[in-house]
């Protein structure tokens, strides 16, 4: 949210509100999002190409959970977030930047925090089971965008959304 302090920002049709996602490799974490009050996503299993883990952490309570998409609890959940959650948080920081992830999780990272895993480590997080179905269905819906046919009809509204290389 650059320019927020600029008096003209509120009056600009082209005010840039969200920085575009930064490029990252998708193989390990095909899906991560800050939505519905959670940092949530899907992490590929290291051993089985057909399996994915669904991991999430709630923004205001810092309650976390990780399970397979069939709701089988992750074996790595001891007293702390598992490696899937750490990977998820790392990729979230790559995609959105540390500042935005921290703001969403309502934490103030200290100067030594650089990665998502470090951010998680600084939280007073607790385990609380939640359903994988909600997140997994959002992932399926996300993937379904790639099945939407292309268009050759002009979409004039996209003039409000110029592509940019400038990080805001």
């Amino acid at each position: 949210m650059a320019d927020v302090d600029d008096a003209g920002w509120a009056g600009r049709s082209m005010a840039r509100v969200v920085a575009p996602a930064r490029p990252r490799k998708l193989a390990k974490v095909p899906f991560v999002e800050l939505a519905e009050g959670r940092l949530q996503g899907v992490v590929s299993s290291g051993s089985d190409v057909g399996r994915v883990y669904v991991s999430s952490i709630t923004a205001n309570t810092h309650a976390y959970h990780c399970s397979t998409n069939n709701n089988r609890p992750c074996g790595g959940l001891g007293g702390a977030p598992c490696k899937h959650l750490q990977t998820l948080a790392n990729e979230a920081v790559l995609q959105y930047g540390l500042e935005r992830v921290a703001r969403y999780l309502r934490v103030e990272p200290d100067a030594s925090t650089n990665t998502g895993a470090e951010l998680l480590h600084g939280l007073n997080a607790r385990h609380e089971p939640s359903s994988a179905a909600v997140v997994f269905s959002r992932f399926l819906r996300y993937l379904s965008y790639l099945e939407v046919p292309g268009s050759t009809t002009p979409l004039p509204e996209l003039h409000w959304f110029p592509s940019t290389r400038v990080a805001s």
């Binding site: 996602a21 490029p23 995609q95 993937l143 965008y145 939407v148 292309g150």
Partner: peptide, 18 residues
């Protein structure tokens, strides 16, 4: 004149991949 072509995508597809 102008002509437009477009596609649906997801947020992690950015840059030259477009």
């Amino acid at each position: 004149v102008r002509t437009a072509v477009g596609a649906a995508k997801v947020d992690s597809i950015v840059g030259p991949a477009l």
